[in-house]
Design a binder for these strands. Structure first.
Length: 554
DNA sequence: AGTAACGTCTGT
DNA sequence: ACAGACGTTACT
């Protein structure tokens, strides 16, 4: 195997490895995803050899054995203090040519070997990842593969056009995500990342349906040569250590872009001022601009984002995007999804969309601050992604009118994740902290309500309208002395629950905080019994005028 | 030596 | 385009 005979740093591309620190790395396997089920330890055949979907590292690092192609040494950023010095001594891997160097080693090359004043384009999303000055300088990005510098004798690398397209998308993504100290003009088109349609977002890529959201293809390690059949031969890869940048450069291998990750915007310092064409800065600081932007809607913000690079960056501020609405979009494109992730909304409406399970999983894994999620009218197939998603901040979940949701499906969502160890913390379901749950139109029975009492005990608003199986016993359950919801419920929607009879009405007086009870379209309820409930004086519910018992269809 | 899993290739 | 397979790499 030729790649193993190459010394590290001699052009052998390095496989990335887990950071072991990110949230994904430190969690346990879900035991339930496609790849877990394949694992021998979970009773599978062990053929796929992939990491648990929930354990996909979000910051894959270079292996410890990686060294600089130029000096042959490892990363040495720990030996210095300043940011700039650290950068010069860190190992950077180019997403295009895959070469790993110390940026400092590049700078100290004789000037005749340097690439003018070209700067690398740093990809802040992935550690030690950039587009090296040479690739940047030569425009070796989306359009052309990196030609062998010394016109090596090797065969041209076949680059099928789909891969080329992916490369272009990848390049765009890198430009959009880059957080380079603005010395380079190589990313001038990155300002155009917001599109003209207002609420729809188009910018960097998200994997969408692709490849389970696997990590970005770094260069691989040349193992493609181990297969018979067609393969991309890499000429000149055994070249001398110091051949770069003069020697035959490894031809580019378009990375397999469908696997790259898009993460929340890094906490990189934002420019605080707006540079003007005249060279000076606009007197208003960023904070003032943000206060202006806060008065704009999504459409206007997207327009602002096309004004200039600085505005574009400022407008990603998540304070400007507390809620995002993608409802009723038949298909969600990768740019839309990554646009959401970059804006980190607190509330996201995906109702009646064709969001897929993978897309939802991808999103939720990257929206850890999400407080409100609306998925009404989506398919259970997709929504089941909630079953293995981390939802630490979730307060509102809307699952109305999802087809095929019965007790067993809701159970999946309510029960604690399978990897929660009994002694770890107390076993907590995902919806423990949820205050508002909308379950209208689902085929739930009292079995689900019992689970709700146990695993969603903090509900203040519950929508069970048009749940055909909800009847008097359900109200008994909800208002029983043992029910935690008896104390917490403020809003309860039971509209269209035909099985409810007058007998259940007095039970609602057990809920001291109940302020709004929707009993519209409950055929068996008599106006008289409802009137008696409504007239119930203190300490019963519905005391204030704005607190209502809704009885009739308005 | 053993385990995990990365990145690419193949068949559909 | 996708899912599955698997050689190989990274690390213990």
């Amino acid at each position: 195997m030729s790649s193993s005979s190459r010394g590290p740093g001699a052009g052998a591309r390095r496989r990335r490895t887990r950071c072991r620190r990110c949230r994904a790395c430190v969690r346990t396997e879900c035991g339930d995803c496609h790849f877990c089920r394949d694992m021998k330890k979970f009773g599978g055949p062990g053929r796929m050899k992939q990491s648990c979907l929930l354990r996909q590292c979000t910051a894959p690092v270079l292996p410890h054995t990686a060294v600089c192609l130029l000096c042959g040494e490892a990363g040495k950023e720990d030996t210095v203090e300043g940011e700039e010095e650290k950068f010069g001594l860190s190992l950077m891997e180019c997403t295009i040519c895959n070469e790993i160097v110390h940026p400092g080693c590049l700078k100290s090359l004789p000037s005749c070997l340097q690439m003018g004043k070209a700067e690398g384009v740093i990809n802040a999303e992935i550690p030690n990842c950039w587009e090296c000055p040479r690739c940047t300088q030569e425009g070796r990005t989306s359009k052309k593969p990196k030609p062998p510098l010394a016109s090596a004798e090797g065969p041209a690398v076949p680059s099928p056009s789909p891969q080329r397209e992916k490369l272009e998308r990848f390049k765009r993504m890198c430009q959009l995500l880059e957080r380079v100290p603005d010395t380079s003009s190589s990313s001038s088109d990155s300002d155009s990342d917001s599109d003209s349609s207002g609420t729809s977002l188009s910018e960097d890529e998200a994997p969408g349906e692709a490849r389970n959201g696997r990590r970005p293809a770094r260069g691989s390690s040349g193992e493609k040569e181990n297969r018979g059949g067609r393969r991309a031969v890499r000429p000149g890869t055994g070249g001398p250590l110091l051949s770069w940048p003069l020697g035959p450069a490894p031809p580019p291998r378009p990375p397999q872009l469908e696997r790259h990750v898009v993460r929340p915007p890094p906490r990189s310092p934002e420019p605080d001022t707006l540079p003007l064409a005249a060279g000076s800065d606009h007197p208003l600081p960023r904070a003032a601009w943000l206060r202006v932007f806060q008065h704009l809607g999504p459409r206007e913000l997207c327009i602002c984002m096309r004004v200039c690079r600085t505005w574009s960056r400022w407008c990603y501020d998540k304070r400007l995007w507390p809620r995002m609405d993608l409802s009723r979009r038949k298909s969600l494109t990768p740019p839309m999804l990554s646009g959401v992730v970059r804006r980190q909304p607190r509330a996201l409406d995906l109702s009646w969309t064709g969001v897929s399970k993978k897309q939802l999983m991808w999103l939720l894994n990257r929206l850890q601050g999400l407080q409100e999620l609306v998925l009404s009218g989506c398919s259970w197939l997709s929504v089941s992604a909630l079953g293995s998603a981390p939802l630490p901040a979730l307060r509102l979940l809307d699952l109305r009118w999802i087809e095929d949701v019965k007790d067993s499906q809701l159970r999946e969502l309510l029960l604690p994740p399978p990897d929660t160890k009994p002694g770890q913390t107390e076993s907590r379901g995902r919806l423990q902290g949820v205050a508002e749950l909308r379950l209208a139109g689902l085929e739930l029975t009292d079995a689900s309500l019992r689970l709700l009492l146990r695993h969603a005990p903090q509900l203040s608003a519950l929508d069970l309208s048009h749940c055909a199986h909800v009847g008097d016993p359900s109200v008994h359950l909800l208002t029983a002395p043992t029910s935690p919801l008896r104390e917490t419920l403020v809003h309860l929607n039971l509209a269209g629950c035909h099985r409810l009879t007058d007998h259940c009405l007095p039970l609602f007086r057990r809920c001291p905080r109940l302020r709004r009870l929707d009993l519209r379209s409950c055929r068996q309820l008599s106006p008289e019994a409802c009137a008696r409930l409504a007239a119930a004086g203190p300490p019963g519910p519905f005391r204030c005028p704005e607190e209502k018992l809704l009885l009739k269809d308005s």
